[in-house]
Design a protein around this nucleic acid. Structure first.
Length: 203
DNA sequence: CATAATAGCTCCACATGCGC
DNA sequence: GCGCATGTGGAGCTATTATG
């Protein structure tokens, strides 16, 4: 508000195409000019202390720094406007970069975890096949009555060593760990349809 | 390519008019 | 006088243009 009365600019950034008689009382500040390194240095210094100077702050700058005396107040205002814009863009770019870094790191971890789990699955499939074979062999032996006592004792010992409740416990713990890692939260073990088959094997 | 300058927009403060 | 709606103008922001 005070700026308008002070500068007498026709405003909201409207008005002329650059460099002609625009009716802008600030004169030919519409011409494109490159500020000198010294001017930029001073402006940067002020910006570091006060990124959003008021009208009177800007007037004061022009008075205090002779190197800025050839600049119009409007030019100072626009310089700070663009400078804030550049600062914001820089910050946003930095933020995006840091988010990108974090996501890349997370992606790497997930890939590693995925590899590890795939190997675990392969191993379990192999183990499952091995146990299935063992059980098939045992059931074949059971049909051979000539060595029934031996078979019974073998069956018993196998059952004992591979205690189904113990295996179930291991399976339960593995699933809990798996889901916990997969979801990032601790979950209760839930019996899935596919798992019922596995459990029935031991019944 | 960096950046000064512009256009178009929103936000805010203030003034004014109106009904109660 | 008070509360509300509306209009006006300045300031800043963002996207874009244009230039050294």
């Amino acid at each position: 508000m005070s700026e308008m009365s002070g500068m007498g600019c026709s405003h909201g950034g409207r008005g002329s195409k650059r460099g002609n008689g625009s009716g802008d009382p600030d004169g030919d500040c519409g011409k494109y000019t490159r500020y000198t390194a010294e001017q930029v240095e001073v402006l940067e210094k002020v910006f570091a202390e006060c990124p959003k100077p008021t009208f009177s702050d800007r007037q004061e700058m022009i008075h205090n720094y002779s190197i800025l005396s050839n600049l119009e107040p409007k030019q100072i205002k626009i310089w700070f406007q663009n400078r804030r814009c550049r600062e914001k863009q820089k910050k946003e770019a930095n933020n995006l970069q840091s988010v990108n870094k974090k996501l890349t790191a997370a992606n790497k971890l997930l890939k590693e975890e995925n590899d590890r789990l795939q190997k675990q699955v392969s191993h379990l499939v192999y183990e499952n096949e091995y146990i299935r074979q063992q059980l098939e062999n045992i059931s074949l032996d059971v049909t051979n009555t000539s060595c029934e006592p031996a078979v019974n004792s073998l069956q018993y010992s196998l059952r004992a060593s591979n205690d189904p409740s113990g295996l179930l416990l291991v399976a339960k713990e593995t699933m809990t760990e798996f889901f916990s890692k997969a979801t990032g939260t601790l979950v209760d073990w839930v019996q899935l349809p596919g798992m019922k088959v596995l459990i029935d094997v031991f019944k």
